[in-house]
Amino acid sequence: MTNNNDKTRVTHTYRNKTDKRILKKNPWKDYGLHITVLVLVIIAMVIGPMEITLTKGVTVSIMPLLYTMVLGLACYLIKQIKWIGKKQSKVAEGAMMLFIGILIAKLAVSSGQSIHLIFEMGPALLLQELGHLATIFIALPVALILGFKREAIGMTNSIGREPEVAIVVDKYGFNSPESRGIFVLFIVGTIIGTVFISFFTSICVSLLPLHPYAFAMASGVGSASMNAASLGPTIAAFPALETSIEAFAGFSNLLSFSISLYIVIFVAIPLTEKLYGFLEPKIGRKAIVNDGGS
C-alpha cells in the first residue's frame, strides 16, 4: 500500500494531505462549505476591486480575492456560523491542494501560449530564483537582533511553505530548534502571508520603477496562494500585459517547485548556517529565547 516511504516524506506533503482528506471522506457532501464559498464569491465579485490612495502616487488595490479569503476565515471564527467548523476547515484544506492544480493549469496554458518568452528571457527567469536568497541577508540579522538563536536558521532560509518545511525537518529532526523556527514561519505565513504579499505588491508596483515582467517573475515565491495574491495587483497595474504576466508566473512557479528546492537544500540552508556562525557571536543576544516563545 505505502510505496517508497522515505522519499515520499520529503516532497509529497501536498499529496498526503489531499489524499487523507479526499480519499477517505466524501467531501462534496459538505454542501454547507461549498454553498458558503459560492456566496462569498458572489459577494466579492459584486463589490469588485477597490483602489485606496495612500499618499500621492501610491495606490493600494484591494482585490476580490482578499475579500473571499478574509470572509472565509471570518466564517470559521464566527461561532454563530455553525456549518463551518473544524471538519469543514480540514476538508477545505484538502480540497485546496487539489484546486492548486487548476490554478497551475491556467498559468501553464498561458505559459505554453507565450513559450517564445522563455527563450528570450530564460536567463532572467533562472537567475531571479537566486534572488530568493535575499531573505537570508535581511531577515537573519534582524532575527538575531530580536534574540532568536538557532530557530533563526529555520525561520529565515526560505519562504517556508510545505516543501521547505519538509526539507528542514528532514535535515534537522522534528524536535530541533531549526524545525521549531520554520514551523513558526509556516503558521504565521499561512495566516498573514497572502494578505501581506498582496498589499506589498500593490505598493511595490506603484512605487518602484521596475520592469513589469520582473514583478511577474517575482510573484512565484514558492507558494501557490501567495503567488495568486501577488498576481492580482500586478495584472491590475499592467492590464495590457495580462497573458505575459501569467506566463511568467507559470514559468516561475515551475522553477520554484523544482530547481528552487535544490537551491534551498544546497545553497540557502548552508549559506544561512555560515552567516549564522559569522553573525551570531557579533550581534546575537544572550539566550533570551530558550523556550521558543516571547
Binding site: 462549505l33 458558503t36 464559498v37 462569498l40 464569491v41 466579492a44 465579485m45 482585490m63 476580490p64 480575492l65 482578499l66 473571499t68 479569503m69 478574509v70 470572509l71 472565509g72 476565515l73 471570518a74 466564517c75 470559521y76 471564527l77 463551518i84 473544524k86 469543514q88 476547515s89 480540514k90 477545505a92 484544506e93 480540497a95 485546496m96 484546486f99 492548486i100 487548476i102 490554478l103 491556467k106 498559468l107 498561458s110 513558526v184 503558521i187 504565521v188 499561512t190 495566516i191 497572502t194 501557490a224 496562494s225 495568486a228 495574491a229 498576481l231 492580482g232 495584472i235 495580462e242 501569467e246 516563545g293
Partner: peptide
C-alpha cells in the same frame, strides 16, 4: 485567472481557520 484565485482563496481562508489558535500564540 482572478476568478479562479478568488474561489481558491475562499477555500484557503476557511482552511486557515484551523491554524488561527496557534497563530494567536505567536
Amino acid at each position: 485567472l482572478l476568478s479562479i484565485v478568488t474561489v481558491f482563496l475562499a477555500y484557503v481562508g476557511i482552511g486557515m481557520g484551523k491554524s488561527w489558535g496557534e497563530f494567536k500564540a505567536m
